[in-house]
Design a protein around this nucleic acid. Sequence first.
DNA 1: ATGAAATTGAAATTCATTTTCAATTATACG
DNA 2: CGTATAATTGAAAATGAATTTCAATTTCAT
Lengths: 165, 165
Amino acid sequence: MLQRRIDDHAPPTREAMREAEEIFYTHLRRVGLKHTDQRDTILHTFLETRDHLSTDELFRLVRKKDAKVGFTTVYRTLKLLGECGLASMVPFPDGTTRFEHQFNRRSHHHMVCTECGASVEFFSPEVTKIEEDIGRKYRFDATRHNFQIYGLCEDCRKRSSRKPV
Amino acid sequence: MLQRRIDDHAPPTREAMREAEEIFYTHLRRVGLKHTDQRDTILHTFLETRDHLSTDELFRLVRKKDAKVGFTTVYRTLKLLGECGLASMVPFPDGTTRFEHQFNRRSHHHMVCTECGASVEFFSPEVTKIEEDIGRKYRFDATRHNFQIYGLCEDCRKRSSRKPV
DNA sequence: ATGAAATTGAAATTCATTTTCAATTATACG
DNA sequence: CGTATAATTGAAAATGAATTTCAATTTCAT
């Protein structure tokens, strides 16, 4: 699906990058895994993006830096990034799983156009509060959430009113 | 994934059933589709459940009523149910898409245990308000949303504290 | 340096979802 | 009540994302 972003964000600062590396390598050490060039390249490529990437999209970006890295390695590294909290999976309505940065990022959510796939990010501190409240209520140790709003964006609404169903 | 339900709900009343049928058949007529026994059976089977069903799970239930109904027909009918608002798709973290009743149902959300897959339903009117607000703000015609909270349920928390990582 | 253990990536596999197509069935109309 | 037309059905095939396999390669502690 087309992935047009309506808003965008500043790239991560130098030190945010450094801190993310720290987290990743610490995680690797803890679970007894090794430090490799591929993992480096993938981490950096991931950090440099601001989009919601599918494994395949990240793979393509990684390829530009190092054509020898395989899809499988990207897939597995993305999993590692998830484990240490740097990335989180977002199941999209088109059935694909996408990943996004979790580190140093305000809790944010997405509004997705069901017609053209355009997405807007929005911030809603209330949602974090709801997560805490509900977790407490049902005695869950709530760690994350997933919130998407679907609808028609302005452009598609105009377009569809021209040629109505 | 295991799908234990923590809470459950009353089955639909006779008239709620009737009303749902009405909605379905009206939709069929409107888009020029025909009324068939299979679609009947699938609609009824779906309405009688309260769980989050995958296409395959519904298919198995339908089979018990009429062994001649094929998977494809269930799949397609579920799509139709979605179109007329009787069912909605919920992408689950295990990668499968599940369907749930939308008719006569308070807007509700799910808290899912990442360890055992247990799910609790909860109600949060604030979420609906957020949907409206954000829609207005970004000029989207917001039609639905998707909200899940992930975490560890009480049982799994106890279990994991016994054998720590 | 060396060797045990982890990593890599191409290819194969899995599995849910979706499409295809020929036979069947529903419905509108004469 | 036929009959024509268009939709439906379901088995099977296709698709496509996610995951696993495995032999060759690389990392890293010693």
